[in-house]
Nucleic acid binder design. Structure first.
Lengths: 154, 154
DNA sequence: TACATTAGTCAACTATGGTTTACTAAAAAT
DNA sequence: ATTTTTAGTAAACCATAGTTGACTAATGTA
């Protein structure tokens, strides 16, 4: 394999490009979120918890189960986010052992601001691609996510 | 913001979906590469070096500069990959301080096998999307990469 | 020729994001 | 009622991926 083939192959792999763009966006997303929340201590690991917390509140154990990590590690991250005033806790009325985790929806560090940060990146994409192209790309990429989440081997 | 809005917004963000699919593919890519090379010790950090090594050979310092990390850390990873027989070193005839890093192109652990591993993931995508759709997706995603690499701020 | 810079390495340290072990308290099962 | 399981936490530990500082040897420059 010659150099030119190598370079060609790298650019020609959709997988490769998807990994790359995912990382680039993630980098920006973290920066944007830190900025939105005015919290430089916000780390990747904190953001990674977001998708597993429902608006109706989710217990620490449930978040851990969904994410596939120990509840100890989730517990620590949640406490830090409570300190940062991004989340708050409420006793589960059904089970007094359990603590439900919620997003703060008022105050300076609401989840809405986090979304605005993410959306500013989408804004950039829309500006470059146009609304129509953005929408069709979204559909396509969502299909990819579907494929990789449903496929178990290969 | 209600739950339904939240879920809708998450699914509707191209950024979010791109981050997600990138991670899912990366996960599979690492598994596939470990398998291709029959080297369970192969780590993410090793794979991350690949894009910075040319077929004509690249010095440790140059790889470090390209990747934006210290040459000490690159040096260590390169040594490990030499042990794994993925790379080999050759003295630079122009500068006897410098060591050029090359991909092994013969033996059991060639870069070709690494590509086959990555390509098997692309195969999966082609099977699900069809050739035409794959190609148009590739073009689109490559545009995204371009956007995020060229844009410096928002 | 002497001095500064660069390539590479080693060892010690650091940050991150976990896990494992050990514990308390509440709930569920027998 | 006793035992077992579950929720949460704290502390110690671990792997990964990097940094910084100190050094050698080769190169480049005044």
């Amino acid at each position: 394999m010659k150099k030119s083939d190598f370079e060609k192959q790298k650019g020609a792999s959709l997988s490769h490009q998807l990994i790359k763009v995912g990382r680039l966006i993630n980098e920006r997303g973290l920066a944007a979120a830190r900025n939105a929340f005015h919290i430089p201590e916000l780390k990747q690991s904190h953001l990674d918890l977001f998708p597993y917390i429902d608006f109706e509140g989710t217990s620490v154990s449930e978040v851990a189960k969904r994410k596939g990590v120990s509840k100890q590690s989730v517990s620590k991250l949640v406490q830090e986010m409570v300190h940062m005033k991004i989340l708050f806790l409420k006793k589960d009325p059904e089970d007094s052992r359990s603590k439900l985790v919620f997003f703060k929806t008022s105050g300076p560090f609401t989840i809405q601001k986090g979304f605005e940060a993410l959306m500013s990146i989408d804004r950039l994409l829309i500006d470059h691609l146009g609304e129509k192209s953005y929408t069709s790309a979204l559909k396509k990429v969502s299909d990819f996510v579907e494929i990789f989440q449903s496929e178990n081997q290969n």
